[in-house]
């Protein structure tokens, strides 16, 4: 079977982010310096971090390991000038091809947690380790106390466009929770309504919960969170109240997992710029 490079990467990572992902109250994001660009082969610089306030570097960086950048043809491309500091990672991307690039992280697979004989919480795969389904039976005790097994996926994305927006990078991989745009994420304007469809493992899913928050939370008291739930066909409509950089966080969960998992979960987050009218 021919597995595309992005997919391979998807299934072999998961290490670097486990730190940030276990700290679930925080928000993880990749913030581009621009989302819509003109001129010959423009550059974009990105910050990647985990924080409470948006978009503030205050907690931990998202690590460079596992970061993927896909060009408008779907090919994986290298980022430049990567650096990980105390609170954020930064890197640059040269948009040499016209169209839309996808930048971010994707990971997932089988996960388990339980309590050992001393009542200590255990996890599989262990922090910093990659899940290998073949090892599940020998590494996870079948009748452990409070055993929870899930099929869990996570994505953190952003999109940037040189010239005219394109859609190749939105072709679903059918793994985890994914956004399929009806409205292009690099074509959002205040006062307009954007429509997105959410797929889990390639199927449109109802009941995906979206929390949408505009950046600059440090300087206001009300988070002004917008809550949206996908309809029966997996669609979510978002009307942008004002221009700014937004973080969209989406969560999905069901009990249609195949053994040994009992639940399936998917999370998706993305940074979207909304322009004034």
């Amino acid at each position: 079977m021919k597995i595309s490079t992005p997919l391979k990467t998807l299934f072999t990572l998961g290490v670097a982010l486990s730190l940030s992902f276990s700290a679930n109250a925080h928000r993880a994001w990749v913030l581009p310096s621009s989302t819509s660009l003109s001129g010959e082969a423009p550059w974009v610089t990105f910050d990647a971090a985990v924080s409470n306030s948006l978009f503030v570097f205050e907690h931990v960086p998202l690590r460079m390991k596992g970061l993927m950048a896909q060009d408008p043809t779907g090919k994986l491309v290298e980022v430049a000038n990567a650096h990980t500091g105390k609170y954020r990672s930064t890197f640059d991307l040269n948009l040499v091809t016209e169209g839309t690039y996808k930048v971010g992280y994707a990971m997932g697979g089988l996960r388990a947690s339980w309590k050992d004989s001393e009542g200590k919480r255990k996890r599989w795969p262990a922090r910093g380790k990659t899940a290998n389904a073949a090892d599940f039976a020998k590494e996870v005790p079948k009748d452990a106390d409070s055993l929870k097994v899930s099929d869990s996926y996570r994505r953190i994305e952003t999109y940037v466009t040189a010239g005219e927006p394109s859609n190749k990078v939105f072709e679903p991989t059918n793994k985890g929770l994914e956004l399929v745009p009806e409205t292009h994420p690099n074509d959002l304007f205040a006062g307009e309504t954007a429509k997105f469809q959410f797929l889990f493992h390639g199927e449109a899913v109802a009941g995906v919960k979206l929390a949408i928050v505009k950046g600059g939370t440090r300087y206001r008291n009300d988070q002004k969170q917008i809550d949206v739930v996908t309809d029966a066909k997996g669609y979510a409509n978002i009307t942008w109240p004002e221009a700014g950089m937004y973080l969209i966080e989406a969560e999905y969960k069901d009990n249609k997992a195949t053994a040994p998992a009992t639940i399936r979960t998917g999370s998706y987050s993305a940074t979207f710029a909304v322009f004034p009218e």
Partner: peptide, 16 residues
């Protein structure tokens, strides 16, 4: 040309 995107409505309708 780098700044053409800043003629924002035009960039959206025609420029890009």
């Amino acid at each position: 040309k780098k700044w053409l995107k800043d003629i924002r409505q035009w960039w959206r309708r025609i420029g890009r």
